[in-house]
């Protein structure tokens, strides 16, 4: 068994780097990440097979449509490098098996990837926003470093896990354990998003009524006494409602907000109170 083929470290690195750089560079609506995948698998296939005909045939496996969250999807690339190695050593893996695994992972990993991205990217970004108060370079620098370091090592880990453990690694990721993890990540996300809605939005009304000389009502104060920053939470809920229950796109919602703002300004509900 000494003559078992093994993908060299160099070819693996090459596949990894090609994927993390090129997963979306040649994106189209029709084929999405397919070309990134082909480009990533090319050095591996080139190394594993001897004849050109075998190489062409092996690479053709990856012509099948591929699209997932590209960063967590690194794991699938690592996995197929492992599978391709097994196939080159005579394991009975046909194109359908490999593509079945790929297709089966795209959906769950996209869902998992999105919640992991929301769970890591949003907090890093929010802390960076906090650090950038007053135009401090600390904020963007923190984001650049924290995000790229986290993602590079995260993707490297995913790729290596995929390569070494094969299918079982990914099963662990999309199995019941991961549901508990995802649930908890989403819990953090929801709470932090709530805190952001209170911190970073500032919607106030300028409306006030004067009943007599010494009695009046400033609507903003009344709202604050019922629920502080009520308008923030109301507008977030409204936008959410329009997008989920009314199936509007974010762009349409933004358009509606322009109308709301115009009407609000005309009625005196909104007034930024600015002048040159």
């Amino acid at each position: 068994m000494a003559d078992l083929k093994k993908v060299s470290q160099g070819a693996r690195n090459s596949a990894f780097l090609r994927w993390i750089y090129g997963n979306l560079t040649c994106f189209s609506q029709e084929h999405m990440q397919t070309f990134g995948y082909l480009a990533a698998m090319l050095p591996v296939v080139d190394e594993l097979y001897d004849t050109d005909a075998e190489k062409v045939q092996a690479l053709s496996t990856y012509r099948t449509f591929f699209n997932t969250e590209p960063q967590i999807g690194t794991m699938v690339v690592g996995l197929t490098v492992g599978l391709e190695e097994a196939r080159a050593n005579g394991e009975p893996l046909d194109d359908d098996t490999i593509n079945g695994i790929r297709a089966g992972l795209m959906g769950p990993l996209a869902g998992l990837g999105d919640s992991i991205i929301v769970g890591t990217f949003i907090p890093i970004l929010l802390i960076a926003l906090g650090l950038s108060t007053g135009g401090s370079v600390l904020g963007p620098l923190f984001y650049v470093i924290a995000w790229n370091v986290a993602m590079y090592f995260g993707m490297k880990f995913a790729f290596d896990q995929g390569y070494e453990l094969g299918g079982s690694a990914v099963e662990a990721l999309v199995g019941p354990q991961s549901a508990a993890l995802r649930d908890s990540i989403v819990l953090v996300g929801t709470m932090v998003i709530g805190a952001v809605a209170a911190t970073w939005i500032n919607i106030t009304t300028a409306l006030s009524f004067q009943f007599s000389a010494d009695s009046g009502l400033v609507l903003q104060d009344t709202l604050d006494s019922i629920f502080p920053k009520f308008l923030n939470i109301f507008f977030v809920w409204l936008c959410w409602y329009l997008m989920t229950k009314r199936k509007m796109s974010p762009t349409v919602v933004m358009g509606l907000l322009v109308i709301v703002a115009l009407v609000g300004v005309l009625l005196g509900f909104f007034d930024p109170g600015l002048s040159y």
Binding site: V118, C239, P272, L274
Partner: peptide, 29 residues
């Protein structure tokens, strides 16, 4: 700046972050 157009523009600016947050809510709620 004190005309309806600019007032609206600035008001829209204060409302828009709600859309961003709402997109996040769409993913987690």
């Amino acid at each position: 700046m004190d005309g309806v157009a600019m007032k609206t523009l600035f008001t829209v600016g204060s409302l828009l972050p709600a859309v961003g947050i709402a997109i996040l809510c769409k993913q987690v709620v």
